[in-house]
Amino acid sequence: MNKENTPALEIVSVSKSFKEKRRTLPVLSDISLTVGQGEFVSIIGPSGSGKSTLLHVIGGLTRPDAGTVRMNGAEVTGQQGHISYMPQQPALFPWRTIEDNVLLAQEVHGPVSREAREEARHWLAKVGLAGFEKAHPHTLSGGMQQRAAFLRALLSPQELMCLDEPFSALDALTRSDMQRWLLDIWEENRRSVLFITHNIEEALLLSSRIYVFSSRPATVLHAIDVPFPRPRREEVTEAPEFLQLKRQLSEWMREEQRKMQAAHQGGSRQ
């Protein structure tokens, strides 16, 4: 099989429901999506729509009721250790130095070579964390911690990076800084990325394709290709096409949010 054409991640008709007090709670319903080699793909959807469950399925923590997960052409449904991951909170280990934190994911998959350590140091300098190699995480600001957490994911041996709303805990200013930073770094490296967010502008700025999820149970409502050429600059956010796409996505999202609220009220009236 040609590696160029095999997608980094392929999710085929995945469904999952949880049992809760004798009721079945469907969370994912027939989800299919693809992340090509070197592609930046976002999932956007209302909060509580099961995006985290999907990530747990991809990471192999949760087995889907139906459907398969394939990576680089091989089926990996229910198997762990195939993705690199960046969680919502940085989740740096407070007893490790920044350098050791960044190397943690590599350490889990085998001994860390001296070259890997050097590479980590090189990257730390590159992302503005020079001089913090031996510092402990609590001495860093929120944005710096997230950069270290991103680096930890970037330096993982696995090809596919899953980023789970990585900037949602940051303040607005730091957030937009981090988006630009991520855009630059990604365009230089072109790793395959699955990015989960509920920020429309963020998704449009960074991704090549966006999957819009419905409210629970999550289905793929729309898949849109983001047409702006690379490398992108931040000015793209002011282009009329960008604004139009943004309006369209906002409308879909609002609609889903409304449906969710209606369902919630309906549910509480019973």
């Binding site: 990530l55 990471g59 889990v108 993982s156």
Partner: peptide
């Protein structure tokens, strides 16, 4: 959160 991270990366 750290536990979830470790399990997600396959530890």
């Amino acid at each position: 959160v750290m536990m979830n991270y470790m399990r997600m990366i396959g530890a």
